[in-house]
Amino acid sequence: MSGAQSTMQTPNSRREARLIQFKIGLRRVVRNPSTLVGGLLVLTLLVMALIAPLIATHDPMAQILTDRLQPPSSAHWLGTDQLGRDIYSRLVYGAQPTLLIVILVIAFSAPFGLIIGMVAGYMGGWVETLLMRLTDIFMAFPRLILALALVSVLKPGLTNAVIAIAITAWPSYARLARAETLALRHADFVEAARGLGQSGRKIVMGQILPLCLSSAAIRATLDMAGIILTAAGLGFLGLGAQPPMAEWGAMIGTGRDHVFDAWWVAAAPGVAILLVSLGFNLLGDGLRDVLDPKHHD
């Protein structure tokens, strides 16, 4: 604990300590405008995805060929695409696959990476060598290229895009968890737990994991921007979400053909991807200030 906090309040119980910690964190988030903006952007994405049917003005799939490539107007707030579909409505519905991809990829890759990293760090020896070299192999590939190769082998689609991105996303968590574990492996409380006869599995899950979580959470938030970009890249190349699903990357892909005459078709989803990625990055930075004890000023 840093000096700044102890001068403010002295907690009387573990629970109170956590509450105080949370309050300080929250204050730090609110005080930092960029974190606040990031948080609001992410919140907007969440809300958009959840209540898409309520705020969309049109059916995102409904085609009116005679209304194709209409510029933004009061009838179509962000214009229409090459099949006469309302871009605003497609943008709103497009938040769903975007969010889904982010959540699923993190849900697959973070736990997997953490376990690999913690096992490697705690066991050491040949297990560590094997696991970490495996991690290195995966890290050696450029992320988008590896995802592209995987998707083309697996057949294009949303599910396979998630699998491909998850496979490319886990190594950074493994690295992180291993580094944390190495630092903690001989800490007093770990030695104490071992002395009390706890099994390796219990020590890893009970003593080490909780201390890895905060850095993993920061990593995950910062990663989300990258995941969105990779997913959009796959969609752009026709390897992600398949038509007629509204997905931002695929929307840019089709808008490419019309970029000189109907800029809004590609611009609207492009700006959406930019804002959401920015949101996750800002939020991640802010979370690091809050959660990472080494970062406290």
């Binding site: 409904a62 085609q63 060929l65 090459q82 099949l83 038509p243 007629p244 089709t254």
Partner: peptide, 15 residues
């Protein structure tokens, strides 16, 4: 084939 004009024709037929 995932290029114009097939993508647009296909999506119209799908609808």
């Amino acid at each position: 084939i995932s290029s114009a004009p097939f993508t647009d024709i296909a999506q119209s037929m799908q609808a």
